[in-house]
Each structure stands twice: as structure tokens, then as C-alpha cells.
Amino acid sequence: MIPQAVDYKRAGSVSEAISLLAENPDAKILAGGHSLIPAMKLRLNSPSLLIDIARIPELRYIEVRDGGVAIGAASTHHDIISNAEIQSRYGVMIEAGELIGDTQVRNVGTLGGSIAHADPSADWPAALIALNASIKVEGPNGAREIPATEFFLGFFYTALEEGEIVTEVVLPAPAAGSRSVYRKFMQPASRFAIVGCAASVTIDGGTITDATISLTGVSADGAFLDEAVGAALIGKSASLETIEAAANAAAEGVELNEDHYASKAYRKHLAKVYTKRALAGACGL
């Protein structure tokens, strides 16, 4: 399988990438390429030009900022899961990142590429939603910052506008007493999530004071914030009964995904099971 003929240019800076993109409407941004190149090999995607942003120095960093962590969009999955700062404070990022693809994919695939691609079964979107992260993008009209909940809009569909690229992901400082986890039921061939649940729960004196739960793989529209589950937790004691009751509300009213491996009914069931498991982990139960 060979892609159709394509031009290749490596951008030296974000601004160069943005102007190349503006000049070539058929162009595609290439970072790790682990979603785009397989699609090009199958000739499902045939851009005229690839703009490689993987080596732009200003896009590959992980730094503590304002108590949180800022991650450059060209950081690889491996960069993220091997970062001590993230390891110590954002369990969900580590647990989700470690379950993306395989070693080789994690060595090349990037955070920015993954979220811009917005596969409805991808792991990062759920983690970012659960952490209340925001995504910085830049385009011909300048830069803007979009909350994760407003960035993922549907099936391979994001808030990115024509000519914009993802530049950074900002993880806010985790609240005291919070813990975040990721639990995933994977499709055994692709290793994508049939159901992935990211949960961030804050407990104060045995009472849940904040809870953000996001599910991926469940909906054809991709990762979403499950507000009903969160609402069912806040103010309650962190007990198995609480989380079981809350998990039973998972994925209600959602347009469910289905494929040859898992039906809608089974996905919905798994959403509840994996929400329960994630909450148990986040509550330390």
C-alpha cells in the first residue's frame, strides 16, 4: 500500500506552518503521522502537500506553568508518560497514554496529532476532558484557547478552524485531594477503546467535592463529558454504593457507537462497568 504522490515540506516554526497551510488549502499537517500516513496508504486521504511540524522546537516541551502543566502539541505520547511531573500529578494522563497503541506508536505519535484527528475511540480526549484541560490553537487569525469540552465536537470533528493548528495543551493544577484515573476496555485488534473512562474525583474528608467523568469509544461522536455521573457523585460519601449508583447513570441519552465487535447495548453496559471501575480507582476503593 502506497500513498498517492504528495509533496513534503518541513516547517521550521509555527508561523511558517500556518502560512504554508494558508497557501495550500489541500495540505495536511503531519506530526507523528500515525493516523494520517496509514490513511494515506489506504488512499483514504490524499493531500497534495504534507507540512511536517514534528520538529518545530517550540512545539515539543512539557513545562510546569501556573501550577499546571503545559504540553507542546508535538510532544509524543512517550514524552508525556515518561514525564515525572505528569506522573506525579496526572494519573489519568499516564494510564491513558500507556494504553495508546503500542511502544512504537507511542514513540512517534503526538498529543496534538491525536486530538486534532479526534478519533471517536481515542484515549487522550477523554483524559483531557476529565482534567478540564484546554487546547491552544493558532491560525492565520491568531491564537485562541479552547476548553477540551468545547474542542471535541464529534466524529473526527473538532473546533479547529480552517488553517489552524494545535500548538499546546494546558492541564490545570489538580485540586488538593483529587485523583484521576483511566480505565479502558480495548478492541483486541486495533487496541482502540471500545469504552474508555477517564475520571477525576476530588474528595474532602470522605465526601466527594468534585467529579469530572468522560467517556470515549462509547459515542459515535467521540469523547464527551458525562455530567450526570458527576452530578450523582458530588456531595456524596466516597463509597461503593455511591459510585455504583452514579455509574448506572453513565452514557444515558448518548447516541451510541456500534461495530462488529460491540453492539450499542453492550457498549452502554460496558460504559457503566468501566465508569464504576474508574470511579473506584479515583476514590481509592
Binding site: 518541513r10 500516513i37 496508504k41 511536517d52 512504537q104 514513540n107 512517534v108
Partner: peptide, 20 residues
């Protein structure tokens, strides 16, 4: 699988140009 700058990568999913 090969090593690119010391890391295992799948060489079927990269362009030669990316390896410059």
C-alpha cells in the same frame, strides 16, 4: 520495527522524508 534515534518505530508508518 527499527530504531530511529534510539527509539523503536514502525518504519511502514513514516515517510523517508521524516527521517531526514
Amino acid at each position: 520495527t527499527i530504531h530511529l534515534n534510539g527509539n523503536a518505530v514502525k518504519s511502514c508508518s513514516m515517510l523517508a522524508a521524516q527521517a531526514d
